[in-house]
Write a protein that binds this DNA or RNA. Structure first.
Length: 344
DNA sequence: CTTATTTGACCGAA
DNA sequence: TTCGGTCAAATAAG
């Protein structure tokens, strides 16, 4: 069990440092809000907590920890997140953990939950359609009263490593067997989430009711053309000219985060992205695909990319989807609102 | 071998 | 008691 531990820990720490840098920049940015600062601070704290958990877990898993090691294990002192107990093989540990979770009334926040519907088209496999960028581990299946199809229970595969508590339930629709209803609960706190967070997501602090992402046939004729822009009128010139650089570094960060072969390729392969400067005060970038997939193939990937760029740009960002949705999104720091959008 | 899934048992809530 | 969510041993997959 050697190789996730150190590299993941480093990733988490690097992630925390990146967010801290973002906060530093954000403190001097004209557009940044108090909310976005708090969000960044929360992310930094999360990164520390995650790192501490990983250290604790690692020390607990190491063969037979000496009593000295046990004593020196790092304490996580926040009441919201109980320290992980040691080996999962320790019979009572999970139950203890659950009871700690249950008994602490001041939870960080009630777990957000939302539902998404996916239509499976005959051509593509079910697994591919249900792929949302995260790795899930199935831990149960139940037949539900009155429902024709069983319900599958999944949790984030990073749970044991990073304590990510995100879960989802997948239920095939009775009325339309090509539709899968996916109920998500809890936001990801794992490394995978750093640039994929709003993928399925819901802007934080917003009531997470349900989101239906329209599934488009990934035919070439329906390819999305996404325009991303950053307002430059009130920003200094160096920022405007470095936006392209920010895009590039975003993808580089993703390479660190995702060891997946999909991501190993370079910037040009992820974004087919010729940039141009408009005559107005906004600099735009055109994006036709993301990670080599046409944007139309997945609404979540559009969100994925927008959030990656937004977090990198750390400034008000505009994005418009030209086809087939023809919506205009206004992005402001971490939070984005959909205007007249099928996403909401 | 390691790691993921399946599936009946188990348990708490209503 | 039933129902739905989770656990964990057995099994399958790689």
């Amino acid at each position: 069990m050697g190789d996730w531990d150190c590299s993941n820990l480093i990733h988490v720490l690097q992630q925390g440092m990146e967010v801290a840098k973002q906060l530093q920049i954000s403190l001097h940015a004209p557009y940044s809000s108090q909310e976005s600062h708090e969000l960044l601070i929360e992310k930094i704290i999360d990164a520390f907590e995650k790192a501490l958990k990983m250290v604790n877990l690692k020390m607990g898993l190491v063969g037979r920890p000496s009593s000295q090691m046990l004593h020196s294990r790092v304490a996580i002192r926040t009441s919201q997140s109980p320290p992980l107990s040691g080996s999962p093989r320790n019979g009572n540990s999970d139950k203890d953990l659950r009871e700690i979770n249950r008994s602490s009334p001041n939870e960080r926040r009630t777990k957000p939950s939302w539902t998404k519907q996916i239509r499976v088209t005959p051509g593509m496999g079910v697994e591919g359609s249900l792929d949302d960028g995260y790795t899930w581990r199935k831990y149960g299946q139940k037949s539900i009263h009155g429902a024709k199809y069983p319900r599958g229970y999944y949790r984030c595969a990073q749970r044991n490593f990073e304590g990510c508590m995100a879960t989802k339930q997948v239920q095939r629709s009775d009325q339309d067997p090509t539709v899968f209803e996916i109920h998500y609960r809890g936001n990801h706190t794992c490394t995978m989430a750093s640039f994929a967070v709003p993928t399925l997501g819901i802007p934080e602090n917003q009531e997470p009711n349900f989101t239906t992402i329209p599934q488009q046939q990934p035919s070439d004729a329906m390819n999305l053309h996404l325009r991303l822009g950053v307002l430059t009128e009130n920003l200094d010139q160096s920022f405007a000219s470095s936006f392209h650089q920010l895009l590039t570094s975003t993808i580089k960060k993703e390479e660190q985060v995702f060891p997946s072969p999909i991501i190993e390729n370079n910037y040009a392969q992820n974004f087919n992205c010729p940039s141009y400067v408009s005559p107005s005060d906004t600099t735009y970038f055109s994006v036709d695909n993301f990670r080599g997939h046409p944007l139309a193939s997945s609404g979540s990937e559009v969100n994925d990319m927008i959030s990656a760029v937004t977090s990198a740009a750390n400034s008000p960002t505009l994005a418009s989807l030209n086809f087939p949705f023809d919506q205009f999104h206004i992005l402001d720091g971490q939070n984005f609102t959909f205007d007249n959008s099928p996403f909401s």
